[in-house]
Design a protein around this nucleic acid. Structure first.
Lengths: 356, 356
DNA sequence: ATGAAAGCGCTAACAC
DNA sequence: GTGTTAGCGCTTTCAT
């Protein structure tokens, strides 16, 4: 009896063709040991012949696990986030998890519930919240977190009790940037920050500020300006900053795009970099080595960040399954986790000792 | 009788609590009309109270459709691809489809079968193959395509019979770049191509070449060099090209990154842009406006491309469902589709009339 | 080593 | 309007 070619092959079709029960087929495709070698061979032959592929939906429903992770992102069009995704996809593949992707419309998207419910209704085994902390975009999450049964891990946000976090140490990034300028002999070091409702922007600024203070240097409001991460804002910001802080000989700029804007300003106004002004950026996007002059910048590894996040999340999932097996309830509180990845400095041509 | 708090709420729990059958609950949550208003209210109240969320896995299994799309990508860390994803996620959200993400390890990843099977076993309703055509990375697909029951749509590849494609018109991009230079009065126009195993690189080069020929100008092998898309290669390429083709007054470079490398070379060697050499790039990544000088470049809309691709794929899915309803088999051949999006030119400061 | 039965959570089809 | 039955494709008991 031929099979309807428009229907997908099921385990039953294979069972029938092999003259065994569907249970035996199930055993074979799951590599269980308790199958006679001859039976196994026969079944596998039929599987091949019919082109049978197990239906993961059915398997997931029955096993109560999907081997999939929900991935929540925002601003994929920006370089940083998409490199992180790169690491996430690679590691997920490695650990044999599928990714279900949800991109928020913007960074301060507040309707967290609909996103979470969407993912949970799909029965994902864990959730990766790869959205930077901006404004109070953690508020809705804070409400859901305690009652959430599914493991969730956050990227790039402030440490909070009960929130598992994997992040770049942005403050350390600010610190090494400023230390580099200090070592070159700079004393008047300004800062162009990202928008301060971004946690990352605050941390980078904090790194700048505290390092200067620790070096016994004074920090005033005239010494910094905030941009919005864009090159255009960087260009405006450097202009403002040069007016407010004309003695400045070095500046730490919170991302490479803004630094690029500053470089353009410098060219337009005949300001020589690094002779008259040293510039340190942040991110080390691949192009920075080809800016003019090549940019000294804080390097951090988005890719590794993504990999690490997936590893930790999967560990959380496994751990929780173990706990459930033993009948132990798992509280969110206990899921505290903080992984912090250290950035490094890439020195190029936009920094030098100050002229005097 | 209290419900085990560790178990997820099911439709049965709601039914029981509301004193109706699970079927009635199903009707309510699916917004069917044939439910008494009072019953509906009661059920909805219980749904709310218990925090019930339908299990999409079960629904998908029973309905034989998942409302999800498989998204295959490569090179997410590059700017272009990730902007496309941006459009794809937005449009998928809009049309209420979930995305299952698969990133290939590299552009010429050949083990197409495992990727396809992974997605198909998850029962995705359609597949978006958002990987550029490079080398013969379409070969494995060609074998699977005829027997594939699930609609699949390709981004950024050559037109082929039976392959639904949504793409940017790269040749037109090359054409408008060269036309711009011609209009400025340039006669010696070189080209830095991408790696020619990329279909997009070939098309851009073709646009350059054919436009020059149509203008009655001669094109020789000394007039172009291939890079690998990176800024470093662009820098090397411009050096080579200037040697081979010293009369050159204008150059069309196949992407912005390579153009950036060329700009750095120009700075280092005191070659004035645009006075001595006009440069046109391709992509119009946001930073190009802040290169020095600001880059004239071919703009194309990755975001719209992604949106359009999702729309077309969903249309294919709907169409096929209709056909199946009428009992008509759908052949892949009939699924031919070619959407081509026209790029535009963004004129900035890296182009001018040739000297004298 | 293999099979039968029940169940995962939902919906389609048919009753009443 | 609402309930009953069967089934989506698989796995998990529990027999044998």
């Amino acid at each position: 009896m031929p099979i309807d070619p428009n229907r997908r092959i099921t385990i039953k079709d294979v069972a029938e063709a092999a003259g065994v029960s569907s249970q035996t087929v199930s055993r074979v495709i799951n590599n269980r040991p308790d199958v006679a070698p001859s039976t196994r061979r026969r079944v596998l032959a039929i599987v091949e012949e019919l082109g049978y592929r197990p239906n993961m939906l059915a398997r997931s429903l029955s096993q109560q696990r999907t081997h999939s992770l929900g991935l929540v992102t925002a601003g994929l069009k920006y370089v940083g986030p998409s490199r992180t995704i790169n690491g996430i996809t690679a590691q997920a593949e490695e650990l044999d998890y599928m990714l279900v992707l949800k991109e928020l419309r913007h960074f301060e998207f507040m309707d967290v519930d609909s996103v979470l419910d969407d993912l949970l209704s799909r029965q994902v085994d864990g959730i990766l919240w790869a959205v930077s902390e901006v404004g109070d975009n953690r508020k809705g999450l804070a409400q859901r977190l305690p009652s959430l049964k599914t493991p969730i891990l956050f990227l790039t946000m402030a440490q909070r009790k009960g929130w598992p976090v994997v992040k770049i140490d942005n403050r350390a990034g600010g610190r090494i940037a400023v230390e580099h300028l200090l070592e070159l002999g700079h004393k008047r070091i300004g800062h162009i920050a990202g928008p301060l409702k971004w946690w990352e922007a605050r941390m980078r600024k904090n790194g700048w500020e505290s390092t200067l203070r620790n070096a016994g240097l004074e920090v005033a409001d005239e010494h910094w300006v905030a941009g919005d991460w864009s090159s255009a804002s960087g260009k405006r910001a450097i202009e403002q900053l040069l007016t407010k802080f004309p003695e400045m000989t070095g500046v730490f700029i919170a991302n490479d795009q803004m630094a690029l804007g500053a470089l353009q300003y410098a060219h337009e106004h005949g300001l020589r970099v690094p002779e008259q002004l040293s510039i340190v950026g942040f991110d080390d996007v691949p192009e920075t080595a080809f800016y003019w002059p090549a940019l000294t910048t804080v390097h951090h590894d988005h890719y590794t960040l993504g990999c690490r996040a997936v590893k930790e999340l999967v560990a959380m999932i496994d751990q929780r399954r173990q706990a459930e097996l033993w009948g132990m309830p798992v509280e969110q509180e206990s899921q505290s986790l903080l992984v912090s990845i250290d950035p490094t400095l890439t020195v190029r041509d936009s920094t030098a000792a100050p002229a005097h």
